[in-house]
Design a protein around this nucleic acid. Structure first.
Length: 424
RNA sequence: CGGGCCGUAGUAUACCGGUAGUACACCUGCUUUGGGAGCAGGUUGACCGAGUUCGAUUCUCGGCGGCCCGACCA
């Protein structure tokens, strides 16, 4: 499934567009998404996803899901309430160690944590399913809402206190098996960013944070709104986060500072090698063919789904509003009818709506009783890739006016030509 | 967590120690109908608490909330 195939009538959509963004919302992504009715700000760093926004989020998830399944991922969903003792085993319950915890307690007594990550619970859970070397490897992933008590939320939906993340975890026999999967994940991530339309601007970047290796890998996308600075060499395909840019790193990567270009980026993914430390702390072992107890080799792999959505909103927008790439747009066609006293535009639009929808093309039909200018302005703001206008004029011509949101190219097509193009 | 700015209608803003105004939105009517229409009428508001005062939305203090800069950011 590439898109939800259902269509919608705009007169039934409860959200409305706004001419102005709330004054306290400074980030471009949230301004656009709020104005166009994709999200609702509940509090600082906490956003609800409305019909349009949820469709975009789901489209992004679907792309990620397909690529995770291709490399053997099995989808699950962990819990948001977590046990204190698991995090104590890895010494990460302490607020001095992890400063983003939301914690609460059960009425029956006992502290619990609200999920900011799932590494400990998932490793512990796997003790139920991993006993023999025959049980490995295992790759699982989920789309989960993470709760992080950030001191300062900012950048709209790109750095919130509540956000959706795809996190995957690998459980392998040994380092060699882990490395094979780790590398396949890098390739899968590249395909994800390619499909999201940011492949050319996204770099696999050396960063700090590996438990057993010198580096972890971050996926960094060039963006004005970014919080990171990285150094890239496009020819050699090398990218280095400034946090690990030093003489030793340059030497290891056989490159000089002069060969590197400084760019501002947003982190859209990060992958880690945990080695066996976490398994040892939590007691996740398997029995090898010699009867020995061996700790499982773990890795984790994240993509910030809602952060990517914010990034796309910023990168793919212009003065008039959002300009979604085809693959993530909430609908493929924005059908705009312009009413007329002389001919039955509504009936014609209904026919287009029906035919496209039956052909599997999701359509947002602007059947509202408002003026043309407002419809066009809203259509530009919402940013659906193709606008199909039905009006007295197009009926007389026998062809619909098709306007591409990106670039503004205008074509005139008959129903069959339009269907052919959209279902090709 | 340090520093700064700020809370007035659904949104954006104005004024004011003495009955809070405008624009957009919303409702009614008429006109209009290919780029956020016009006219007429209407609905909607001072974050919470304490203090000062004859009187506080305005001044003071506290709380709560928001934004920005920095720090932080598996």
């Amino acid at each position: 499934m590439k898109h939800p195939t259902y269509s919608a009538r705009q007169s039934q959509l409860f959200t409305k567009t706004r001419k102005e963004a709330p004054k306290d919302e400074v980030s471009k992504n949230a301004q656009l998404l709020i104005r166009a009715g994709y999200v609702h700000k509940e509090m600082a760093g906490v956003y609800a996803y409305l019909p349009l926004g949820l469709r975009v989020q789901n489209n992004i998830k679907e792309i990620v899901r397909e690529e995770m399944e291709k490399i053997g991922g099995q989808e699950i969903i962990m819990t948001s309430l977590q046990r204190k003792e698991l995090w104590e085993k890895t010494k990460r319950w302490d607020d001095e160690v992890v400063d983003v915890w939301f914690k609460t307690e059960l009425k029956a007594g006992g502290d619990i944590g609200l999920a900011w990550s799932h590494e400990e619970p998932i490793a512990d859970m796997m003790k139920n399913y991993v006993a023999s070397f025959r049980d490995l490897p295992i790759f699982v992933y989920q789309f989960q809402t993470k709760l992080r008590n950030e001191l300062r939320a900012k950048s709209g939906i790109m750095r919130g206190r509540e956000f959706v993340m795809k996190d995957m975890y690998s459980f392998c026999l040994d380092e060699a098996e882990h490395t094979r999967f780790y590398n396949s994940t890098i390739e899968a991530y590249k395909r994800v960013y390619e499909r999201l339309g940011i492949g050319a601007d996204t770099f696999v970047t050396f960063a700090s944070g590996g438990a057993f290796t010198q580096f972890s890998h971050e996926f960094q996308t060039i963006a004005e709104t970014g919080e990171d600075v990285i150094y890239i060499n496009r020819e050699k395909g090398i990218a280095i986060n400034e946090e690990v840019l030093n003489e030793a790193t340059l030497k290891e990567l056989a490159i000089t500072r002069a060969d590197l270009e400084e760019v501002k980026t947003a982190e859209v993914g990060n992958i880690f090698n945990f080695g066996t430390q976490k398994s040892e702390d939590l007691g996740l072992f398997y029995t090898n063919d010699k009867g020995e107890q061996i700790p499982v080799w773990m890795g984790s792999y994240g993509i910030g789904i809602t952060r990517v959505m914010g990034l796309l909103a910023e990168k793919f927008s212009d003065a008039k509003g959002l300009v979604w790439p085809e693959q993530v747009a909430p609908f493929r066609v924005h059908l705009v009818e312009l009413q007329s006293d002389n001919v039955d535009v509504r009936a014609e639009a209904a026919e287009v709506y029906r035919e496209l929808t039956e052909a599997g093309v999701p359509v947002l039909w602007d059947d509202r009783d408002v003026r043309a200018g407002e419809k066009f302005a809203d259509s530009d703001l919402i940013g659906i890739p193709l606008r199909v206008v039905v009006s007295e004029k197009t009926l007389a011509a026998g062809k619909f006016e098709c306007v591409h949101r990106q670039g503004g190219r205008v074509e005139h097509k008959s129903m069959s030509e339009l269907l052919g193009q959209l279902t090709a």
